[in-house]
Amino acid sequence: MYKVLTTIVLLISSMFTVQAASVSPYQTLETTGNSLFNRIAQQQQELAKFPDLMRTIVEEELMPHVDYKYAAFRILGKQLKKTTKEERNKFADAMRHYLVRTYATALASYTDQQVIYEPEKSFEGKRVVAVSTRIIDKDAPEIEIQFKMRRNKKTGQWKAFDMVVEGISLLESKKAELNRKIQQQGLSQVTLELASIAK
């Protein structure tokens, strides 16, 4: 038990060290991506038996680097001012679970494709940076994915808040879909629906 606790403490410490050192959105994305894709590749046998393991991988490897709360508030847009703090938090929590499910489903088709990250560019003075990646599969067309990264004012840490696949923004698509529903049904009902989809 002591060894297990020590290992957990060391892992958490190393995570914070990596995050503190990752002052670049490019470095943050590449470090996170490599860790995520390597783990998926290594656990192919387990994933074949237990597909839900992908959600655990996404939770542990990807979500600490996703600014789901900012994404949720962006989706609410003008509706944000009309909501209470409790409503916003419940919606953000439902959005987090929805993103875990969405990313897990998208990553289910990943086996061991090559991922090429955009070379680092100057980002001085910027709070939002778009970083491009290319997924290369010898048996399928190349896919371009752009991650929109945002720097936290307090921590200086960069996190992703949107994913643009072949020019289509996941955030903007969800915003267009949910805004109509929120206006018609109310935020509480949409939050419940979102939470049920994410199960």
Results as ranks from 00 to 15, higher is better:
Met1Cys: 14
Tyr2Lys: 15
Thr6Arg: 14
Thr7Glu: 14
Ser13Leu: 15
Ser13His: 14
Ser13Gly: 15
Ser13Asp: 13
Ser13Glu: 14
Val18Cys: 11
Gln19Phe: 13
Ala21Cys: 13
Ala21Met: 10
Ser22Asn: 11
Ser22Asp: 14
Val23Glu: 09
Pro25Ser: 06
Thr28Ile: 02
Leu29Ser: 03
Glu30Leu: 01
Thr31Trp: 08
Thr31Ser: 10
Gly33Lys: 04
Gly33Thr: 05
Ser35Trp: 02
Ser35Ala: 03
Phe37Gly: 00
Arg39Ala: 02
Gln42Gly: 00
Gln43Thr: 02
Gln44Val: 05
Gln45Trp: 10
Glu46Tyr: 05
Leu47Trp: 08
Lys49Ala: 09
Phe50Gln: 09
Phe50Ile: 11
Pro51Trp: 02
Pro51Gln: 01
Leu53Asn: 05
Met54Val: 05
Thr56Gln: 10
Thr56His: 06
Val58Lys: 07
Val58Glu: 08
Glu61Pro: 02
Glu61Trp: 01
Pro64Thr: 06
Val66Glu: 08
Tyr70Asn: 01
Phe73Arg: 04
Ile75Ser: 07
Lys78Val: 15
Leu80Tyr: 15
Lys81Ile: 13
Lys82Ile: 09
Thr83Asp: 02
Thr84His: 00
Lys85Arg: 14
Arg88Lys: 13
Lys90Gly: 05
Lys90Cys: 09
Lys90Gln: 14
Lys90Ile: 11
Asp93Cys: 10
Ala94Tyr: 01
Ala94Val: 08
Ala94Met: 08
His97Val: 04
Leu99Thr: 12
Arg101Phe: 01
Thr102Asp: 12
Thr102Gln: 13
Ala106Asn: 13
Ser109Cys: 08
Asp112Leu: 05
Gln114Asn: 06
Val115Leu: 04
Glu118Val: 00
Pro119Ser: 09
Lys121Ser: 07
Phe123Met: 03
Gly125Val: 04
Val129Ile: 11
Ala130Met: 04
Ala130Gln: 07
Ser132Val: 06
Arg134Gly: 05
Ile135Cys: 03
Ile135Ser: 00
Asp137Met: 04
Asp137Gly: 07
Ala140His: 10
Pro141Gln: 00
Ile143Thr: 08
Ile143Ala: 09
Glu144Ala: 01
Glu144Phe: 06
Glu144Gly: 02
Gln146Ile: 14
Met149Val: 09
Lys153Gln: 13
Lys154His: 10
Lys154Ile: 12
Thr155Met: 05
Thr155Asp: 03
Gly156Glu: 12
Trp158Gln: 02
Trp158Arg: 08
Ala160Lys: 12
Phe161Ile: 07
Asp162Met: 01
Met163Gly: 09
Val164His: 01
Val165Gly: 05
Val165Asn: 05
Val165Ala: 08
Gly167Ala: 07
Gly167Cys: 06
Ile168Gln: 03
Ile168Pro: 03
Leu170Gly: 10
Glu177Phe: 11
Leu178Glu: 05
Leu178Pro: 09
Leu178Thr: 01
Leu178Arg: 03
Lys181Pro: 00
Lys181Gln: 11
Ile182Asp: 06
Gln183Pro: 10
Gln184Cys: 07
Gln184Pro: 04
Gln185Trp: 13
Gly186Val: 10
Gln189Asn: 10
Val190Gly: 06
Leu192Tyr: 00
Leu192Ser: 11
Glu193Asp: 11
Ser196Asp: 08
Ser196Lys: 12
Ala198Tyr: 12
Lys199Ala: 12
